[in-house]
Each structure stands twice: as C-alpha cells, then as structure tokens.
C-alpha cells in the first residue's frame, strides 16, 4: 500500500479525495493544516505523495512545502482554488511537482496522482543509457522499440503520430510550425490550408496528456506551432 497524505482545511474535500484514491488502492493519511501536515510527514516517512491545499489556517501550503522540501523530496501536488497563472508558477517554483485547481475533475486527480507516483517510484530505475532514447521529464521515446512512455506508462501511438512526436522530442523546446512538421514527416511541400497535422497533434495530446487542455508536454503555441516542453533529461 502506498501512503498518500492529503491536506486541506475543508474536511469534506479530504474525505472525497480519500474515497477516490482508496478505490485506486492508496492508503490515505489526512491533515487539516500545514503544521499538521509537517507533523504527519515526520511521523510517517513512508508517505509517497503529498496533496496539499494552499490557503489553510495556521500554516499555508506554500510555507509547508518550503519547510518539507528542506529534508524531503517526495512529490507534492498543490490542490488550490487559486487558478491564476501566477499562483501556479509560484507553487511550482516553491517545489511542487504538479498543480491542480479546484474544483477538480476526480479522474484528472487520479491520473495526476498515478503519474506522480509512477515517476517517483519507477523512473529512477529505468535504463536510459541508450542513444535511441529521447526524453523530456516524464516523457520518454525509445526509437529502437518505438515505445512511448509517459510518466512510466506505455502509450500507443500511430506511426505518423510517433514520427511527429519524435521530431518534437528530438528538438525539445523548439517550436515547429505546421508547415515544418508537414514537410518533415511527409517529405513534401505543404500546400494550402490543411489541418491534418493539427488533428494529429491533438490526438497525440489526448493520448499523452492527462488534461489535453492544459498539456504538460506537448504545448500548443497558438498561431505559431507546437513544441515539446523541455524538462531536461
């Protein structure tokens, strides 16, 4: 059983999360403010993931995270009603691994929790000493086996989708225009308005992203093109 600590000053939310995550086979520990969360973590070093609210009495989530990060590298997911970009950036910079806004979709929460746990428990063990392996953060492509692994989970892509993703991952961080992608993959000149590429990319996004509307890896630069976010090797 993997232990997950859920910390929110709203008891009902904690209970609801417990119901969802228990069904997934996790063991849930509960805390209702930052201080309680820190204490619970001290008592239970086995906790593999912390889901923490930001706005809480006594000590808020940001401060708690900073404190925890002093001696603990477990994945932390912020769960907050604050949905501003600045809030998200602040949270992630303070040491959080993910950020989920309230009200959340339970399925998305579960997916993100799973992905975070996988990254934490499995990624370190994967063999990446291979020239044919390209990765960015939790996204990994093995060009020998044509495998695509996202946060430790296999993803099935069509050959064209794979080729497009490969092009982007090889050049992670660089923005490709639709025409560039088309010309590289189909080896012919792009003529006229055609949303073939755009549709393919959307399909890839639906497959590799937990929330395709807020992609972590395959980002859309509207009016310009697409890129794979560079999270490093």
């Amino acid at each position: 059983m993997i232990d997950i600590l859920v910390c929110d000053d709203d008891k009902e939310i904690v209970d609801a999360i417990e119901i969802y995550l228990s069904k997934e086979g996790y063991n849930i520990l509960k805390a209702y403010d930052g201080i309680e969360a820190i204490e619970t973590l001290k008592k239970n070093p086995s906790v593999a993931l912390l889901i923490i609210d930001i706005m809480m009495p006594r000590m808020d989530g940001i401060h708690a995270t900073v404190k925890i990060r002093e001696n603990n590298s477990l994945p932390i997911i912020f769960l907050s009603a604050k949905s501003e970009d600045t809030d998200k950036i602040l949270g992630l910079n303070m040491g959080a691994d993910d950020y989920i806004t309230k009200p959340f979709n339970p399925l998305e929460l579960i997916a993100r929790v799973n992905s975070a746990i996988r990254r934490y428990t499995q990624l370190g063990t994967l063999n990446i000493d291979n020239n044919a392996v390209f990765k960015s953060g939790g996204l990994l492509l093995n060009d020998d086996t044509k495998e695509v692994i996202v946060d430790g989970k296999d993803v099935k892509l069509t050959p064209i989708e794979y080729n497009i993703l490969m092009l982007l991952v090889r050049n992670k961080g660089k923005v490709f225009s639709i025409d560039q992608i088309y010309e590289s993959i189909w080896n012919e000149e792009a003529i006229g308005a055609d949303n073939t590429v755009a549709v393919h990319i959307r399909h890839i996004r639906e497959k590799i992203e937990i929330n395709p509307k807020e992609p972590r890896y395959l980002k859309v630069v509207w009016g310009v093109g697409y890129k794979i976010e560079n999270y490093g090797d």
């Binding site: 639709i178 308005a193 949303n195 590429v197 755009a198 990319i201 959307r202 859309v220 509207w222 009016g223």
Partner: peptide, 18 residues
C-alpha cells in the same frame, strides 16, 4: 505580443474542434 500566423491559428482551432 507575438507575430501570429492567422492561417496556422485557424488550422489549430479547427483541429481542436474537429
């Protein structure tokens, strides 16, 4: 502000709502 390609933007939008 960025220099946006309107045709690409519309293609991307159409793909989103396809």
């Amino acid at each position: 502000y960025e220099r946006l390609n309107v045709k690409a933007l519309i293609d991307q939008m159409n793909a989103e709502f396809y």
